[in-house]
Design a protein around this nucleic acid. Structure first.
Lengths: 177, 177, 177, 177
DNA sequence: TTTT
DNA sequence: TTTT
């Protein structure tokens, strides 16, 4: 059934790249999308929309976008639920990006050599937009994810998992492809 | 900034129509949107996306759609947060529908005389898509909401507020228009 | 760059299925999409939007949709140009559908056994939405297109090319995949 | 019925602002939207999509965007037809923008003081997206269109109609509001 | 008739 | 807490 979302906004923080147990890259980020009108108090508000991207695009986003970057997302809405630590079921709504467009100008952010290109995971894009996007991810334990060292990565944290103490609860069996 | 969502799915339950303290109609409903592919286990899953509509369209939706109805939504994603009873801040992501299209055939559901028309709130549509959609609504205490008695309403509960024991926590001061 | 279209409307005519020289199916159809408001004269107008679909979906559309069928399209806008018979360059804007959703009810149109399922061309959907959609197509000369005989096809013309006298001017070399 | 388009691209030329006989502003421009993949010959192609905006947004676009500017459009597809000089009926497909987002960085284009804000025509946006967008427009003969002299306008032609020799064939009777 |  |  039809499920389509298009957003343009700015990243509220640096994106977070992780890998599933099988080395599939997944990046999550939040887009702040300003509302076109001000509220009763005269302030412009924003919506903060959680997004995930998979595979090659995940690495592109992690490498080329950072807090404050302007980006466009074309994807689908996804809902899922999980049990939190108190045993409560938490419902989550987020956007699974099928493509992410970098909208920063070429000469932005000091000198990075990246432009306004779009990020696609592979020659046939949008394989399956319904990849699981569970809360916890496999911590990448040393295996080479196959993407390191792209230009632009240096302005991200060296270890994208440094702040990630979450338990392992995703395996590639969850991936529908 | 760009924030656009289009969905086609089926209502998981009868829509819920409420009124703000000032008599502004707001209807909430959840769309089940089937995913185009099956998961690892071979099952087709769905996303369950919460939607709200305001004003005239709210009444149309409440009058003409019910559990299982197929509908299209064109709107925007909205996030908000509230404190729950345990003092926890809960984040909510939902779709504010600017228009809702009824996709049931004319002769559907037995004998309702409604067709495949689209629901718009007013001649100039989509006034402000960022209307508040807080969790609790004013219980309508007897004032005429200005729309009752449209054909088709009979197949809905006579008192749309009967099951609504939520506290009053929205006033028209919150409405940005 | 972002290029996204979502439409719901009704086919103005039976869809036209053709095949490229290499046997790739392509179906074209026009969606009438009613405008939400009436014009100065009080009439509801419609937009008539040309759409194309490729491969498996092309065959599904040809098999299961016909004049008057309600359908949803998720795709991209595409422009192209060609020389007409007077040597004039004609510019064309159309929608390349990545997915087509059938919105007719199960029991519609007399008894056809088709439902409200979505049509996708292959397990990894939407390979390349920028397939050429030139005006003339290869007339299928006897090779098996690989899809005949699906249920529902009987209510379409036996020979989908019978009325097609257009010259051959597309080859698979034009296909970017 | 659902009819939604979202585009991000670059203006192929300076936008063209005109006025109807009643002084309603309308701006037309073409967006070049790059395709995400290269064609058979290895080149990246683009789609060239004609867009129109009305009223206040028309003036904003004319004042703040120019050839090469990056912009996002959220709107609807519209078709219309007209007789050309040879008496042939020409069919036109274009996008009626309900909102236009300026995606150029704040410090772009030398020194213009405009940022990445979105252009809306009025506090209640998107009154009627189905405004006529005929080929020829009334040449504004001296009446003040009510918007001149906004900052940024200096980098546009002083007389937006200088190159416009088209006959008058639109009147406000055509405007559905 | 096309943009970076 | 989920629809056909």
């Amino acid at each position: 059934m039809i499920n389509r979302v298009v957003l343009v906004g700015r990243l509220t923080k640096d994106p977070e790249l992780r890998y599933t147990a099988n080395g599939i890259a997944v990046t999550s980020f939040t887009l702040a999308v300003n509302r076109p009108f001000s509220n009763q108090q005269g302030n412009r508000e924003a919506d903060f929309i959680n997004c995930v991207v998979w595979r090659k695009q995940a690495e592109n986003v992690a490498n080329y976008l950072k807090k404050g970057s302007q980006a466009g997302v074309d994807g689908r809405m996804q809902t899922r639920s999980y049990e939190n630590q108190e045993g409560r079921r938490i419902f989550v709504t987020e956007v699974v990006a099928e493509s992410v467009q970098f909208l920063e100008p070429k000469n932005a952010s000091g000198g990075g050599g990246f432009g306004s290109q779009e990020s696609y995971g592979n020659p046939s894009p949008s394989p399956n937009p319904y990849e699981p996007a569970n809360d916890g991810f496999q911590r990448n334990q040393g295996q080479a994810p196959g993407s390191g060292g792209q230009k632009g990565q240096t302005d991200l944290s060296d270890d994208p998992f440094a702040s990630d103490g979450k338990p392992i609860d995703i395996s590639d069996d969850d991936l529908p492809f």
